[in-house]
Simulated scan of single mutants.
Amino acid sequence: MRWLHSVLFWSFFVASSAVLFCVALVLFLVTWPFDRKGLVLHLFSCGWAQLYFWVNPGWRLRIQGRERLPWHGPAVLVSNHQSLGDILVLFGLYRPFKWVSKASNFRLPFLGWNMYLNRYVSLVRGDKESIAKMMAQSERWLERGVPVLLFPEGTRSPDNTMRPFKDGAFRLAHAKGCPLIPMVLTGTGDTLPKHGLIIRFRANCEVSVLEPVDPRAFPDPASLRDHVYGLMEREKARLESGAAAP
């Protein structure tokens, strides 16, 4: 039955994406004169992404600490990365931010085109010129008071354990002196596999938004990175154990 469920899901995904991109395009044109930061379109994109979570009745989402995410002002948001389902879950935060995403995602029909409309930030992994451009674009959004969201592992974990963090997000927060907000995901690896299109019936997903970290309290980005990794590793272990929040 999983294959039938998957066929129905992906058929709905493709058909609805075509329709919703047309809505997004109209929304972009209507709101552009007064919403240069793209907040309205981003919130619409949050609802678009959450639609695919809602149509899977066996998927559950619990969010802790959403109030720690700003509506206004710069922040660097970082999250561990387990699955494509992370995207659906993090859009469910319904807070303003600009994704940093690999450049190939922007070429996807409808979804990638919507990423262009939202002016999310593209990145070619391992390309120094692209990394420099990504950092510059992210800095400009922060200067305009818009948070940016990065996966510091750089790619999805194959086994749900956290991979070592890259420095980009931490150099960004340290350079701009803006809050760095760690977020920990669990259960999203049970939604969509890293390879293949067969989705799973049941998933209990959780997002825990931790207290903002002040990068000015650390002498360099590396010490900030190591501190945040420790915070997220401990929170991930707590979530997976089912322990109550301290």
Rank of each mutant, 00 (worst) to 15 (best):
P215N: 03
V228F: 02
S157V: 10
P215H: 02
H72I: 13
Y94C: 15
S122A: 14
R216F: 02
A244W: 02
H81M: 11
R156C: 11
M115G: 12
F106Q: 06
N56V: 14
N56I: 13
S11R: 03
S130Y: 09
R225E: 07
V19R: 00
D226W: 03
K37L: 14
K236W: 04
I181Y: 00
I87W: 01
E233S: 15
S223R: 14
G58V: 12
T191L: 14
P147L: 11
K102P: 14
P70D: 02
W71I: 07
R234D: 08
V148W: 01
T161V: 14
A245W: 03
P193A: 06
F28N: 09
G154M: 10
A237W: 00
F12W: 05
Y229W: 14
G47A: 07
P74M: 07
A15N: 00
V228A: 04
D127S: 13
G38I: 11
F44W: 12
G145F: 05
G47S: 07
L224K: 01
C178Y: 00
R60I: 09
S83E: 04
A132F: 02
G242S: 08
R234N: 09
F13K: 04
D214W: 04
L192M: 15
V121Q: 01
F21Y: 15
Q64P: 02
L84N: 08
S79L: 10
M232Y: 01
R225T: 08
L108R: 03
V124D: 05
L185D: 04
A15K: 00
W10F: 13
G73P: 10
P164Y: 02
P164R: 04
G92T: 06
V228T: 03
D86K: 09
R171C: 12
L231S: 03
F170N: 06
Q50I: 07
A136G: 09
